[in-house]
Nucleic acid binder design. Structure first.
Lengths: 351, 351
DNA sequence: CTGAAAGCGCTAACAT
DNA sequence: ATGTTAGCGCTTTCAG
């Protein structure tokens, strides 16, 4: 009644119910053509035997695993996991599971994980690329596997992508600061070889030009990893210069955190009172970032939703509009408690 | 040379290389008994054909998927994902992949995901349980699948578990505050039906008794979810009482955040200057929690490491010591910048 | 409505 | 050292 390895199979059920395995398979797949009577009996036996369908065998036969592979540079990245969570909410009810793998910020590792996922016959793949290289996504095996890039697009690579409209976010920040009366706005960001760092720098330069504000090279700081240490270093360097601006746009949450912590513990009250930030990312600890007047909140939930929907569409064989490049507008937050002032969000026409 | 669905199989390779499928399988599995010559030829053909091993077929045959199933109440939980990341670092090199699923904090959903993972033939399962119920983990199918509980243990359930030693952490916090001179210490925590909330409350009561400090019911606050709103509410309630203590132990990061934000924006400088916190969790934004003198940092990396090692052991058929209950001691952080003072950590004997 | 049978791609005896 | 063959558990024609 049970195979030597412990679990009952379709065969055991068939035998026990006095039907053929085909019939058992039919009830498993909710086929119409089974008498309510036999269905009942089969279901009954399954219950008794504690039968569990073997999805692996099914996958082999039908050539699809109902599995989506996911690769990210870091699993502990809050942004990415919120996106994954949103995806799960719409994919799981459709029967999909998600295999998750970390590229550990290395293209080499990304290639390796890609290979693993291909061998596991994932039906689709979602990746937040580790670097700017993307030839490994052109492999023959991937020709039949829908692939969606998240957060970053790799130039020259023809695949679907979903990302935050970084430039839009920066524009609004500059606009907000200008509306509040600031003419001189510094930039604190990371090395432009990083995709988001570059996008935000470009957005800054664009916006400053558009609003006719002066870009002062001395206060456009863009070196290093986008972490707390860099945030602290760059801010202290800027404030070390004579006649520095009071307003700064900061390119991400970690740098913002570093800059704020530095300011709070090392600056004279007078300097502190004048300092104003606008920055990317709005996280749980936003209430503690007291120097921040405006922030850009990435639409994580919506990104997840878009990715999942697009994936479902591709999985269904619909190649319409390929490759689609979805750009989602972030939410703009105004920190009234810190002195931010409501402003009229500039209407921007998408490219 | 290629099957109708696009990808080459072992059969295609065999044919093209002029050998049998068995030989191809042998080179795939690094069998010794293949001439360097034929191996070379087979490898060559694989390359040419862009062959990828079909892990699904392999799994069906060998009855193991090299897959670990993971269920957590929330995927965006930083703590859990850091653990998962650490696990991945040791499991991936051994050929394991991880299927991740969210129970969305619901036992019902947890059951459903459990079933999915069983049907997918995961080799092992790691779960951070959603509730206190655990009968669904007693299902027959799970008898042959190693299961490890993380962060919480379900009473009466005989399974391996790995968790933070919450009581140890609280003890050290109370000890630290006492060493600094505080005799009266309030408690701000969540509803004790939540596992961690209860453990930390119990730890607090234990420690207060042990140090001969008075437990004042008025200042033992333990209602609501462990989030920012509750942190704020409970602190404001405590401070609203006459003759309140200046020192508080706060049971987790969210409540700590809420309490700090509230204090900074609503309290008179005089009150603020006296207020001191010791709390659980030490995250990226710790530099901003200026009222905190001491914190407990959960050993996430080590938890992940322990879980992975234990899993590997069970997967290898080693049932030694089952069920193992690993308790990991958290790290104690002293915030010198905020006024915390180094103290001699109390040596505690494990139960 | 139900059963018989072929076969998904691979591994692992068992032969040779 | 290599080939033959029998399945792993399931789905799916094709008959009846």
């Amino acid at each position: 009644m049970v195979d030597s390895h412990g679990s009952a199979t379709i065969k055991d059920v068939a035998q026990s119910a006095g039907v053929s395995i085909a019939t058992v398979s039919r009830v498993l797949n909710h086929s119409e053509s089974v008498t309510a009577d036999t269905r009942q009996r089969v279901l009954q036996v399954m219950e008794e035997l504690g039968y569990n369908r073997n999805e692996v065998a099914r996958s082999l036969k039908v050539r699809q695993t109902r599995t989506i592979g996911i690769i990210a540079p870091e699993l502990s990245n809050v942004f990415f996991m919120e996106v994954v969570e949103a995806m799960e909410r719409i994919l799981a009810p459709k029967g999909y599971s998600m295999i998750i793998a970390s590229s550990n910020d290395s293209v080499r590792e990304e290639k390796r994980k890609l290979q693993v996922l291909i061998e596991r016959n994932v039906d689709g793949m979602v990746v937040m690329p580790a670097g700017a290289e993307g030839e490994h996504f052109l492999t023959k095996a991937l020709a039949n596997i829908p692939l969606i890039m998240v957060d970053r697009r790799i130039k020259g690579l023809e695949v679907d992508s979903v990302e935050t409209d970084n430039r839009y976010g920066v524009h609004q920040m500059i606009h907000a600061l200008k509306s509040e009366g600031f003419e001189r706005i510094g930039f604190i960001g990371g090395d432009p070889t990083i995709h988001t760092a570059r996008e935000r720098l470009l957005g800054y330069l664009e916006a400053m030009a558009e609003y006719g504000l002066p870009v002062e090279e001395r206060f456009v700081l863009k070196k290093g990893a986008m972490n707390q240490g860099t945030g602290k270093d760059l801010l202290s360097r800027a404030l070390g210069e004579h006649d520095h601006p009071d307003a700064f746009f900061i390119a991400n949450d970690s740098m913002h955190l570093g800059a704020t912590a530095y300011a709070m513990e090392s600056l004279a009250q007078e300097t502190l009172d004048r300092l104003v930030f606008a920055s990317f990312d709005y996280l749980s600890y936003a209430p503690l970032l007291k120097l921040c007047h405006y922030a850009v909140a990435q639409p994580l939930e919506r990104i997840g939703h878009e990715v999942a929907s697009l994936m479902l569409k591709r999985l269904g064989g619909d190649r319409l509009g390929f490759p689609e490049h979805v750009m989602l507008r972030p939410d703009i937050k105004v920190m009234l408690a810190n002195g931010g002032r409501p402003f009229e969000q500039k209407v921007m026409v998408a490219d």
